[in-house]
């Protein structure tokens, strides 16, 4: 028990150290690039699922499952790029509210990650109706953040 606790403490310390190091070294413009790249990839893998759900392209359960699996990982990435050091960056659509209402922003981000995780789960089942429902819920979670924290 003690040993487990010790291991966990070490892991947390290492993890915290690692993320501190990453953010301490990264320049603001790199962080913006990090999160924009992650967003671009999310769009790349999410879009085709939407096209299939609307019937704009034929439904392919394997592609949906693959993309949703990628998305589950990708969805965890953008949050890391939203560091306070990027507050004054010009080439970004992030609104000041990202930092002034951080709690709401974090919650919206977490909510999105949760919905994407569910999408990945549902996608494995291959049931088109269930995927469409969860696709809609995921899109709403994306939009919630875009509405409040992204300039139009």
């Amino acid at each position: 028990m003690k040993k487990k606790f010790l291991l966990a403490a070490v892991a947390v310390a290492l993890g915290a150290g690692a993320s501190f190091q990453a953010s301490a070294q990264a320049k603001p413009e790199q962080l913006v690039k990090q999160r924009q790249s992650a967003m671009a990839l999310i769009g790349w893998y999410f879009g085709p699922i939407g096209a299939m759900m609307r019937g704009d392209r034929p439904f392919d359960a394997a592609v949906v499952a693959r993309n949703a699996g990628y998305l589950e990982v990708l969805s965890k990435m953008p949050a890391e790029g939203f560091q306070p050091s990027t507050k004054d960056e010009k080439a970004t659509k992030a609104k000041p509210e990202v930092w002034s209402d951080k709690a709401k922003f974090d919650k919206a981000m977490e909510n999105m990650q949760g919905e994407v995780a569910k999408l990945a789960q549902v996608a494995k089942g291959g049931d088109q109706g269930a995927i469409k429902a969860q696709f809609g819920a995921t899109g709403k979670a994306c939009a919630a953040c875009h509405d409040d924290f992204r300039s139009k």
């Binding site: 429902a133 696709f135 809609g136 995921t138 709403k140 939009a143």
Partner: peptide, 8 residues
């Protein structure tokens, strides 16, 4: 405003 599948 509702977004999601309502966009269709």
């Amino acid at each position: 405003k509702a977004k999601g599948n309502w966009m269709e």
